[in-house]
């Protein structure tokens, strides 16, 4: 018993770093899916088909008005129930461990997608119309126009919003600890409870998150310089 009390930050450094790695994993995957959802959402919002616009508007309004923690709990229950039913129907009962990971990513991606929809919509609307009309006049099919004109022209507009969303996502990953998913904050809580050194461990977790966000800031600044190359510096 006495030995357990002697555990400190050093003994938990491994699990904490492991947790930080899991946090980064789910963040990167959720971000990638969120980007896709955001692009689809923005295209739906800007489309001529009104049912698409309606669905996209409902998606962004509801997701952005309901607290993230509430959404995560709600979607986590609903999502893992659906996933388990699916796996059972496929005869794969053993894959329960995976479902927690998948559900965590799915929930975060759905939330991110709603905010990204707004970022992409604004960025696409900010492209000068003449560029799109010129592309059409050249006879570019829609997909080629999207790939060659819309995407490169809107990225500089979208990147500040996207970098902001990445930082929000890193901080939101802590919320999936509430539904018992083992990432950085969940491991921290276990470590703090087991060593009773609450102050130390929460400060350490804070430092790890801060390191991730500060490093992300540097990377996003580089990315912004990259997509803005060729633009006049003002």
């Amino acid at each position: 018993m006495y030995q357990f009390q002697n555990e400190g930050l050093i003994d938990w450094a491994g699990p904490l770093l492991q947790g930080a790695l899991v946090t980064l994993e789910i963040a990167v995957l959720a971000y990638a899916i969120g980007l896709l959802l955001g692009l689809l959402g923005a295209l739906a919002k800007l489309s001529r088909v009104w049912p698409l616009r309606l669905v996209a508007a409902g998606y962004t309004t509801v997701i952005r008005a309901v607290p993230e923690l509430l959404l995560i709990i709600l979607l986590y229950y609903a999502g893992s129930q659906a996933l388990n039913a699916l796996l059972r129907s496929l005869g794969m009962d053993g894959a329960v461990d995976i479902s927690g990971f998948v559900a965590a990513i799915a929930v975060l991606a759905v939330v991110q997608g709603a905010y990204m929809t707004e970022v992409f919509r604004g960025a696409i609307l900010a492209i000068p119309r003449g560029q799109l009309e010129a592309a059409q006049a050249f006879g570019m099919p829609p997909w080629l126009c999207f790939r060659r004109i819309v995407l490169p022209a809107m990225l500089p507009n979208a990147l500040p919003g996207l970098s902001n969303l990445w930082l929000i996502l890193i901080k939101d990953t802590a919320l999936v600890s509430v539904v018992g998913f083992e990432e950085l904050f969940f491991t921290t809580q276990q470590a703090a409870a087991s060593t009773r050194a609450y102050f130390t461990f929460y400060a350490a977790a804070g430092a790890l998150y801060l390191a991730i966000t500060l490093a992300s800031n540097v990377l996003f600044r580089r990315a912004e310089a990259l997509v803005r190359r060729g633009q006049a510096t003002g």
């Binding site: 809580q189 703090a192 102050f199 461990f201 929460y202 804070g206 998150y209």
Partner: peptide
């Protein structure tokens, strides 16, 4: 500003409640 905006609010909440609160 950097520290508060760079860490999750949930971590801050537990830092003050469990960390500072128990000291």
């Amino acid at each position: 500003t950097t520290v508060i905006r760079g860490t999750p609010l949930l971590v801050q909440l537990f830092f003050f409640y469990d960390g500072v609160g128990r000291l």
